[in-house]
Amino acid sequence: MSLKPYSKLPELNTANVLLVENEEEFQKRLSEAIVRQENSVNVTVRLARCLPLPVENAEGRPRIDLVVFIVHLRSEQSLLSTEASLKHLDSGYFLGKVCFLVTGARSGTVSYERLASIKRTAASLNCPLLMTEDKTTEGVHTAAQRVLNILKVSAGLVPMASGLYLSTLIRCSMPTDSDWQNQD
């Protein structure tokens, strides 16, 4: 059963974000940073290794306003798991309620192909793709802040802006820069 964005009613002044990460190493730190930062809105962070989510809790689960896929470029598995999870998401989510969080893009050991592949996925789904520095506290802080910015919009908490509107502005573009590959 796929996760649906509009099957439940929203609650007042509340935003729910789902962090999906196969390795479960970054999501905890990120969720703490998110909760610590936001104090004007009730933010609930839910964690998952992959989709689909278990059916048992489906009733009690609140409406998810944003699904964040954390992709570690250091591991191929992370990429494969993300691609597999995407299939279990209702198409309504791709109208501005999904974003990708990529770590390790700046590292020299990562192959360009992997980055290009996740970029292609994000671009074909019209989703934003954020780069993060997961090793430093400042990096985690920044990532949390950026996720919150998107979350607030997609949860409808920012007047005159919607998730779809924002994601048309920040969606990932197809990787075309061939000179990048040459340099590496």
């Binding site: 400042e138 990096g139 802080h141 920044t142 950026r146 820069d177």
Partner: peptide, 11 residues
């Protein structure tokens, strides 16, 4: 130009 593409905006 390359760095902007992998920048997280804070580093």
């Amino acid at each position: 130009y390359k760095f902007l593409r992998v920048w997280d905006g804070a580093l």
